[in-house]
Design a protein around this nucleic acid. Structure first.
Lengths: 120, 120
DNA sequence: CTGTATCCAGATTGATACTG
DNA sequence: CAGTATCAATCTGGATACAG
């Protein structure tokens, strides 16, 4: 048993799941993996996320130390999000998750379909 | 974009998260990794899980094809759970999750504490 | 441009009691 | 032994409007 930030877990993998589980966290991390990005760019890339949800997920990723938020004191406001050092270390793990996901769905080929998605 | 079992995902890693996210799933998978096990043994190993929750999580893992449920037609009833072939392939991925979890909490050493837990 | 505030629906988790 | 049933609490995600 391990206690971390007042919650108990039976395995450190459970902590990791709590870090990346959330409606838009994977999507955000995948976008940030391409480089720093501003809030509204992210909105455009993830048009189905409401402002509220996007902000909430960003705040969680930030307080968990996986991303950084930099405010430029200019007008109009400019805020840039980026992966933290810790966040950058997530990449190999996310790749393993993707890989297993791919392996997994290949076991159920009839239940899968793919669509291209435009980022209008 | 990918559609699988009537839900859409932006990355196969999101599918994997849906497979293993759930109050007791990781704990169950970790126990099953040691070998097949009966329902009540599992209850003893995970005393904080209610019967209802344990059953629900087992059913989900089963319908996702990660574990098998074998009923022995004897009296008293005997039900044994085991990893499926697909479930066995989870092991390396779970290890990567654990590893990142360990790396992660080492970045916040002051917020961590460990306790031994008895399976009374 | 980058957010908050308010209100709400549905899903998830849980306590407790009961059953073939 | 291996579950179900019922009811309730909490948590997550969302629609919409407003603000510095």
């Amino acid at each position: 048993m391990i206690t971390f930030r007042d919650k108990t877990y039976r395995c450190t993998s459970e902590i990791v799941l709590s870090l990346v589980s959330g409606k838009w966290k994977i999507a955000i991390l995948n976008e940030l993996a391409k480089g720093p990005i501003r809030y509204n760019e992210l909105r455009r890339l993830l048009p189905d996320a409401t402002q509220r949800m996007l902000t909430m997920q960003l705040r969680m990723l930030e307080s968990d130390g996986l991303i950084s938020r930099k405010v430029y004191p200019v007008s109009p406001p400019k805020v840039e999000y980026d992966l933290s050092e810790l966040g950058k270390q997530l990449a190999p793990m996310l790749l393993v998750l993707c890989d297993f996901g791919t392996t997994y769905i290949e076991s159920y080929p009839d239940e899968v379909s793919r669509t291209n998605q435009k980022h209008a």
